[in-house]
Computed example of a mutant assay.
Amino acid sequence: MLYKTSQNNKKKSFINKRVIATLKFCILIGLLYFSFLQFKIIQYANTTIPKGADYIIILGTKVNGTEPSLTLQNRIDTAANYLMKNRETIAIASGGKGPNEVISEATAIKQGLITKGIGEDRIVLEDQSSRTTENIAYSKKLLPSKKHIGLVVSNYFHIYRSRIIGKDNGLDLYSLPAKTPIKEAPRWYFREYLAITKYYLEKAHIIN
């Protein structure tokens, strides 16, 4: 009986070690994967910002009633700063109306730009999209002919996915990253890691 008990304990110990080793391996793979995503986010956001772009696409995010969230306001401020320095550049304000939003994200962007002194005639509305893939695809349809140099305006964490979606839509977009509110950064980055992963999987499914 003691021998049998000893054997069972050894077996359990072996199984526990295997489980722990497997968990450690999964954690390591997860850390390496998220490190890779963070590297791509940094790489794609930290690029040269060309002057005199033909257009910029400003991606929408949450609107609190009729007021832009702090995250969206940072995008508006970044876009307005560029537009004031580059008078020939047009802006495409992109984003539909989500739950609990009184106005569309595109409308909030437009109003914010006008408040900053950007002429209404330089702003094009795209107010039907509900996610980044639609933001880019629908905005592309609104681009005037012979407009080649474009930038995408979003928060730092969102630039990588926005640009690769742009590339998939035939747009070679430059980066114009906006600041991310510090207190909201962990939540946004975690959501973005998941969103990028989802996009990878969807793209792989389409290709296959």
Rank of each mutant, 00 (worst) to 15 (best):
K203Q: 11
E184G: 02
Q73H: 12
I42K: 13
L31W: 05
D168T: 09
K24N: 06
I196K: 03
P181L: 13
E134S: 01
R163F: 01
V102I: 15
D172R: 07
E134P: 00
T197F: 09
Q128R: 05
V124T: 14
L143G: 09
L31V: 12
I29G: 07
S154W: 01
N100P: 06
L151W: 03
R18W: 02
A137M: 13
G112I: 00
S175I: 05
S139W: 00
I20A: 14
I123F: 09
T5W: 12
N86F: 08
N9M: 14
S104C: 05
I20Y: 08
L83N: 02
K12N: 06
S129C: 05
G30E: 03
Q43M: 09
L59K: 04
A79C: 10
L72H: 01
R75K: 03
A195W: 03
I103V: 13
T133N: 04
A185Q: 06
Q7M: 12
D172L: 14
L143S: 06
N74K: 07
K4S: 14
R191H: 14
H205P: 02
V19L: 13
Y3G: 01
Q7Y: 06
F14T: 12
A137N: 09
V102T: 15
N155P: 08
G150L: 10
Y193E: 02
K10S: 13
L113Y: 01
I149N: 13
R163L: 11
A108M: 04
N8F: 14
I118Y: 00
L176K: 05
R87P: 00
H205Q: 15
Y156L: 08
L70P: 02
I149K: 09
Y200P: 02
N86C: 11
D121V: 07
G112M: 00
R87N: 11
S175C: 05
I206N: 10
L151N: 00
E184F: 10
A108L: 00
R163N: 06
K167E: 12
L32N: 13
I196E: 01
K146E: 14
Q128C: 05
M84A: 11
V63Q: 03
E126T: 05
E101R: 01
V63Y: 00
R87K: 15
D77V: 04
T22Q: 04
R131H: 13
I27P: 09
K24S: 11
E101F: 03
N74H: 10
A185N: 06
S154G: 15
F36A: 12
P177Q: 08
G166H: 05
T66P: 08
G170T: 12
I149E: 09
D127S: 13
I114N: 07
I206Y: 11
S94L: 05
M1N: 13
